[in-house]
């Protein structure tokens, strides 16, 4: 988490081995692993839903998912597509073209594209931006569903984007890591902080993120 411009997208792109890293390295896997995430052998293990994603608008939902299965060289594409449609409750939309879907439903399809190869690590960059409350809720449910058997990293500046299963929150500030702990610990820190003038109604966690990210 963190305010706009703090580098959340850059970090996620780096984790997804998109773009270049100026310094340092990213290691994925068990503790002690020494293979950078940029190694091609990690690609099948990572799913990435970029910020404000889109896809060929005339493709149907099923075609978009099958296309991603082809891109990711999934062995049993029809089974993988069926599984994602089941997981994300996309049955009614499977034959509809993406351009005919609402923004929230389209985002679920795109989430399905990033899941089609059953990655161990799923990276979601501001996944609910632009969604109304109903779609935001449905999307969170979908993320909770897929988080049952994999690690999901969600980049957001909205605390409510984090589903019930969120086990760890990292707050990025202007000068680096500002917080690393559980949601409860974040809320506790927020409650311990004095509300600033005019923010009496601000939830404790949001207050904590704002203050921590600002480095105060």
């Amino acid at each position: 988490m963190g305010p706009n411009g703090v580098g959340k997208t850059t970090l996620l792109r780096a984790l997804a081995s998109l773009g270049t890293i100026d310094a340092g390295s990213i290691l994925l896997g068990v503790e002690g692993a020494r293979t950078p995430s940029t190694s091609p052998r990690y690609r099948p293990r990572i799913g990435y839903l970029p910020q404000d994603p889109d896809f060929i608008p005339r493709f149907t939902t099923r075609e978009a998912l099958t296309y991603s299965a082809w891109l990711h060289r999934v062995d049993d594409a029809p089974a993988a597509v069926r599984q994602v449609i089941d997981d994300l409750a996309l049955h009614d939309e499977s034959g509809r073209q993406l351009r005919r879907l609402s923004g929230g439903t389209r985002r679920r399809v795109l989430l399905g594209q990033s899941l089609i190869h059953r990655p161990d690590l799923l990276l979601l960059d501001e996944p609910t931006v632009g969604m109304d409350a109903e779609h935001r809720h449905a999307f969170r449910r979908a993320v909770d569903e897929v988080a049952q058997d994999r690690i999901v990293v969600v980049s957001t500046h909205v605390l409510s984007d984090l589903g019930d299963r969120c086990g760890r929150v990292v707050v990025l500030g202007r000068s680096g890591l500002a917080f690393d702990g559980t949601v409860d610990e974040l809320v506790a820190q927020g409650e311990a902080m004095d509300p600033a003038n005019g923010d009496d109604g601000e939830p404790a966690a949001d207050r904590a993120i704002r203050v921590l990210a600002a480095g105060r």
């Binding site: 998109l18 091609p40 990435y48 970029p50 994603p53 896809f55 060929i56 608008p57 991603s68 990033s114």
Partner: peptide, 19 residues
Amino acid sequence: AVLHRSRPVLEAAGRVWAA
């Protein structure tokens, strides 16, 4: 240009040239 909109999805799969 239409495919350009799908660029992040294609890049994530590492198969832009294939697409």
